[in-house]
Design a protein around this nucleic acid. Structure first.
Lengths: 162, 162
DNA sequence: GTGTTACCTTAGCGGTCTTAACCATTAGCG
DNA sequence: CGCTAATGGTTAAGACCGCTAAGGTAACAC
């Protein structure tokens, strides 16, 4: 049984996040060649190291088809590259291309600049509070697709026997 | 010129918010009759008082057509009602219906419950930090469509002289 | 009454996400 | 060795959400 305080925070989340999301998306859109919100995080992750499709889907908390499609559009734009290791030709490794790196760099800077304009008016204390809050959000949501059991279930291909 | 700290926070925002958004959307989706993420905030606002379409668009930071469409689907589901005051038949007043109120109530509770599960593991201190951060987010984004000058301009009818 | 302005809607497009169904490759086992 | 099952991805179809551009109607101003 969740405490009232917890439920209150949940409600806050429910109302505020979409609002913020819209703004973030708008920033990204305005920041030039629009790597859609989802693409931005993806490119950032891939900037650290190449990944398989499944890994990416897990990290971002989306379904495999969604990730497959996202990657496809990223490939179309020349930002990432698919490749299959000879070891196991079922898997697909996704890597960023130099163009992709450059793009995420550039767009990220532009979006940051815009966002910073809004954040610039904050008092240092408020900014610190914001950052702390974001840290908590990251801890909670960073890889917790836990609420959807199916997600995990699918991984093991639990087939309900008709 | 934004400080490094500000830019850092902006980058955090850019990466984390979409992640959180996905989870929130999933909660709402899982919570039954899925008033899509955007609809939830809308119904909440309308729960406080009826609004015109333009007001709603401004409050939510979306374009007028977008709001018109959202309201249309809400109407289709019987959650809100459109009406034109005799005073000025150009404007449209949106009101929640009893069904709408009940729905947002029920779905909100379900989503809260899910979210609370994740939030429940937080230490009280962490939860407080989160709440504080959300408060800052609200202040910054709640009605700051500032990045798009047209939006504000349109409201005050500040017409750039051709 | 003619023209401008305000408010809203329609049309069309791209993006994100889902589930269901399908294909290809690999691994296990008789 | 050949068949079956499991694993990893992709395609297809459907629902939302956001945008711009292009109407349409009501009110206001001359």
């Amino acid at each position: 049984m969740p405490s009232a305080a917890t439920r209150d925070t949940a409600r806050e989340l429910l109302c505020i996040i979409p609002l913020v999301m819209r703004t973030v998306a708008a920033e990204l859109r305005a920041a030039g060649e629009m790597p859609a919100p989802a693409h931005f995080g993806l490119l950032t992750i891939l900037g650290r190291q190449p990944r398989t499709l499944t890994e990416l889907a897990l990290l971002q908390g989306v379904s495999l088809p969604t990730m497959s499609n996202s990657v496809s559009t990223l490939v179309q734009r020349g930002w990432v590259k698919r490749s299959s290791p000879a070891r196991d030709r079922r898997v697909v490794i996704i890597e960023v291309t130099p163009v992709g790196t450059a793009t995420v760099e550039r767009v990220g800077k532009a979006a940051e600049a815009h966002l910073s304009e809004m954040l610039g008016n904050l008092t240092p204390a408020a900014r610190r509070r914001l950052k702390a809050g974001l840290g908590v959000l990251r801890d909670v949501f960073s890889d917790a697709p836990a609420t959807r059991p199916e997600r995990a279930a699918r991984a093991t291909r639990a087939r309900t026997p008709a």
